Simulated assay, not measured.
Amino acid sequence: MIEKKLELRKLVIYYSFEGNTKFIAENIAKITDADLAELKPKKELTSKGFMKYIWGGSQVMMKKRPELYPLEKNPEDYDIIFIGTPVWAWTFAPPLSTFFHSNSLQNKKIALFSCNRGQNGKTFENMKKELEGNDILGEIELFDPLLKDKNKNLQKIEEWIKGMFINL
Rank of each mutant, 00 (worst) to 15 (best):
K48A: 03
K48I: 07
G49H: 08
F50L: 14
F50H: 09
M51W: 15
K52F: 08
Y53E: 03
W55F: 11
W55S: 10
G56N: 13
G56Q: 02
G57A: 14
G57Y: 03
S58C: 07
S58R: 15
V60M: 07
M61E: 02
M61F: 10
M61T: 09
K63V: 05
K64G: 03
K64T: 02
P66I: 03
P66R: 00
E67H: 09
E67Y: 03
E67T: 02
E67S: 13
L68M: 03
L68P: 01
L68S: 02
Y69A: 12
E72C: 04
K73I: 09
N74P: 13
N74I: 02
D77M: 06
Y78M: 01
Y78V: 08
D79E: 05
F82V: 10
F82P: 02
I83E: 04
I83C: 00
G84I: 12
G84D: 04
T85I: 05
P86Q: 08
P86L: 03
W88E: 03
A89Q: 13
W90Y: 12
T91P: 06
T91E: 10
F92D: 00
P94N: 07
P94Y: 09
L96H: 11
L96G: 06
S97Y: 12
T98H: 02
F99W: 11
F99N: 04
F99P: 00
H101Y: 12
S102C: 13
S102N: 15
N103G: 09
L105F: 02
Q106C: 11
N107D: 14
N107L: 04
K108A: 05
K109M: 15
L112T: 04
F113E: 03
N116A: 05
N116V: 04
N116M: 06
R117W: 04
G118E: 09
G118H: 10
Q119L: 06
Q119F: 07
N120K: 07
N120C: 10
F124T: 00
F124N: 00
N126W: 13
M127V: 04
M127A: 12
M127L: 14
K129G: 13
K129S: 14
K129L: 13
K129D: 15
E130R: 12
E130C: 09
G133K: 01
G133A: 04
N134D: 01
D135A: 11
D135Y: 08
I136V: 06
L137Q: 04
L137R: 02
L137V: 04
